[in-house]
Simulated scan of single mutants.
Amino acid sequence: MRILHTSDWHIGRSFHGHATLDALRGVLDAIVAQVREHRVDVVVLAGDVFDSAAPSPACYTLLTDALSALSDAGARIVVTSGNHDSAARLGFQAALLREGIAVLTDPRGVGIPVTIDDADGPVHFYGIPYLEPAVVRATWEGTDLRSQAQTMAHAMTLVRADMAVRGGRSVAIAHCFAAGVEATPGVEREIRQGGLDVVPLSTFDGPDYVALGHIHGRSQLSERVRYAGAPLHYSFGEADKPRGSWLVDLGPDGLAAVEWLPLPLPRRLVTVRGTLDELLAHPRYAEHEDAWVCAQYTDATPQSDPMRRLLRRFPFCATVQHTPEGLPVADGLDYAERVRAAHDDVELFDAFLAHVRAGEGATDDERALIREVLDTRTLTEASR
């Protein structure tokens, strides 16, 4: 049996205020093409289908179109919910979908597989929706569930108990932080406190393959336990992470092969750095004019209207950061101490500028201008 492992579509997520639905639609069309090309039997979507618990109608349309296209390409589909999804809303849609598309969102169904047969016999797909300990305690009364790790361990115990009865090959699908993987800062919403909710890798012992979701970067924790990551880049912190899916082959005796299938990037993500004048004019940045740009300008002082100016050169400039270089070493004085140390009004202005510029006071030209303004004010007041 041939399986395509994908996850974290995050339908409806924006990128620095820009909609991503059209870009995601193009990438999902590429996944459909891969399903046809590689004759995939089953597509597994491991959670975070939507980006929010209340997606817009356009998000539902995109999901329905994508699942229908995958089905038309000849694949069965198994979907689970993630921590961004509303399990109730996603599960409600399940009843409206065509045969061959299973959407698993109810924790009461953990341990009950979707069974799909091939020439070598049955393969049992155990979908584990995102499990919030405080929510599922009522589902599994009498079980100590205080952390994600405990909850996932209980769910996998149910899975292994069913596997022991049914026999045959099996795939588990889950959405969590697993030990040995590193999150992308500022990207994946936390579902842990400290290290308590990191799920040990041994928790997933048993199935022939474990398809994980939640981490946006491709990751292999073992030969049989993997993250596929998101199909789109949703932050500049992900720019160096490849986009794609795992193509998994199950033979008659279990896992036979795993191959990475890359996906196209609708638009590159780059971070450019230099003074604002350099970013606006230097030829070395020309190759990035059609990319999503994070612009870091290094001028010592904040510049006027940098985003508007940068958009003239970089139409897809998404964010601007002031990251000054070469500032003087801070003298350790707070603002009140700077003010008390000033001997005249010029030094008072200098103290203010040093405070807001992380230690850099007025330049010679600025100091001359300040003195001129103060002198003019003094003459004006004296003439009254």
Rank of each mutant, 00 (worst) to 15 (best):
M1Q: 08
R2T: 09
G17K: 11
H18G: 03
D22P: 00
R25W: 06
G26Y: 01
D29Q: 12
A30P: 00
A33L: 10
Q34H: 15
V35H: 04
H38I: 02
V42S: 04
V43P: 02
V44W: 01
A54K: 01
P57N: 12
S68P: 02
D72M: 11
A73L: 05
R76E: 14
V78Y: 04
T80Y: 00
H84P: 02
L104G: 00
P107S: 11
R108H: 14
R108M: 11
V110S: 08
V114H: 11
D118N: 14
G127S: 05
P129E: 05
M156E: 03
V171K: 08
G186R: 09
E190N: 09
R192V: 14
L196H: 12
V198I: 15
V199Y: 04
A211S: 10
G217I: 00
A230E: 02
A239G: 01
L247R: 14
G254I: 13
A256C: 07
E259H: 15
E259Q: 15
L263N: 06
R268T: 08
R268M: 08
V272A: 00
D277L: 06
A281F: 11
Y285Q: 01
Y297V: 06
L310E: 07
F316T: 01
G332D: 13
L333C: 08
D334W: 06
Y335N: 04
R340C: 05
V346A: 13
V346K: 01
A351L: 08
A354R: 13
V356L: 09
D364H: 07
I370V: 15
R377L: 11
E381W: 07
